[in-house]
């Protein structure tokens, strides 16, 4: 059988980069969505409170 050199560092780098970038994108999107929802809820409740106190 033909002997092939060890190419595992290249394979590990390819998988590491792809999985790492996918995780950063996925977790980043989930955190951004949670932050956006929390901020919208806070602004809405602040406005409701201000409108009720004004009336």
């Amino acid at each position: 059988m033909m002997h092939l050199p060890n190419h595992w560092p290249y394979i590990a780098a390819a998988y590491g980069l792809t999985i790492g970038c996918s995780l950063v994108l996925g977790i980043g999107a989930a955190l951004r969505l949670r932050r956006a929802k929390t901020r919208l809820a806070a602004v809405e409740s602040q406005l409701r409170h201000r409108e009720s106190s004004a009336s």
Binding site: G26, A29, L33, A36, K37, L40
Partner: peptide
């Protein structure tokens, strides 16, 4: 698809 849906939902909320 999940990431794009999440980013788009966040953009709508923002």
């Amino acid at each position: 698809a999940a990431v794009i849906f999440a980013r788009l939902s966040a953009a709508i909320h923002e």
